[in-house]
Write a protein that binds this DNA or RNA. Structure first.
Lengths: 199, 199
DNA sequence: GTCTTATGAATGAATG
DNA sequence: CATTCATTCATAAGAC
């Protein structure tokens, strides 16, 4: 039920409630159970982010494109066109089109390509990454090569779900919210990756 | 097969691919069947988490002792410390009843209400979040007890956290705190004040 | 038939 | 806002 209220609000344009709004919402929701302000806050944060991603259909039905996997010039225009950061950028990365690449090749190409992102956060936590060359395969279950294209056991691992998403009815959103055009100064943007737009 | 690719990548160090990596991987995997970016994303999330959890289950020499022949079945940390937690009545927060104001009303009231930033005391304002009174315990099992008016399905959407910590194997890394220096800087006035007042 | 496990999906909770 | 982690739900596949 609480969900209903929250969704309703969200739908109505309250995507990022201000603190006062959060307080109100919270107190209203408390009728249905105990809720703290932070719950509401997080809910909106997450919901907004995830909704937005969802909108960016996963797919990329791109297949025939071409281009070496490497390059990877990551040309995001995340520049400071300051004032507005429309993160909406979509990577139009054309992929290579070699169809029958062996999977090892696939792997290597992927590995070489990126890796550049979030390095920063890596250090704080994952310094201890296993040596990439780790030949340790704990229990590498050596599957006998069923080289036909599917692993029997995990077969068809991603069941096609194709839940259609709704459209936009987008927002003129909260007139209320912060806006406040913060002096962001120069956003000397780092290469900020917009995480999934997959959902 | 897709699994092979994914496992390979994972093994090679790609534990949490960035979006661009995910896209690449996805498009590569699509040769074998339809896959969406989110599938890949989820795969890595889950795989990583589960790998780690398994690993985590190592140092526990703990009491696996003789008694439990059952062995490793799910003892887990679900920690129903059920034993105690007497669930005091005082937390009788559920003054619910008759509070069935229609949720639409709630919504409208919230929408109309806010917007008033009342700048004055904003910055120092601190919400008096009362500590949820430790109320209800999550009782994992025995869910049937829903006499409550909650809708089973949407239910307690915000499960009260507050869980006591687990036992620690690697515990406190607290000692590192030395260089905090957050330099919060007084940016005076901003509306966007820390939402962290909720925490 | 039920129980158990593996795993995709989802989401709350942080942190930067 | 982006990213990440921890939990939890649902369900298919096997085991019993």
């Amino acid at each position: 039920m609480q969900l209903r209220v929250l969704e309703e609000l969200f739908r109505k344009g309250t995507e990022t409630p201000s603190t006062s709004q959060i307080q109100k919402i919270t107190s209203q929701l408390r009728r249905y159970g105990n809720v703290e302000g932070k719950n509401v806050f997080y809910w909106f944060q997450n919901h907004k982010a995830r909704e937005r991603r969802k909108r960016r259909r996963a797919g990329n039905i791109e297949e025939s494109a071409s281009s070496s996997a490497q390059g990877l010039s990551k040309a995001k225009e995340t520049n400071c066109s300051c004032g507005e950061l429309t993160e909406d950028q979509e990577s139009e990365r054309k992929d290579n089109e070699r169809r029958n690449m062996d999977y090892l090749q696939i792997i290597s190409s992927i590995n070489t390509a990126a890796t550049t992102s979030s390095v920063a956060s890596k250090i704080t936590q994952k310094i201890i990454q296993l040596p990439s060359s780790s030949s340790i395969s704990p229990q590498l279950n050596c599957k006998e090569n069923e080289d036909d294209n599917e692993d029997p056991r995990t077969l068809e691992l991603f069941p096609l779900n194709k839940k259609d998403d709704v459209g936009e009815e987008d927002n003129n959103k909260g007139l209320i919210s912060l806006s406040e055009s913060k002096s962001k100064k120069f956003c000397a943007n780092e290469e900020e990756v917009s995480y999934h737009q997959f959902f």
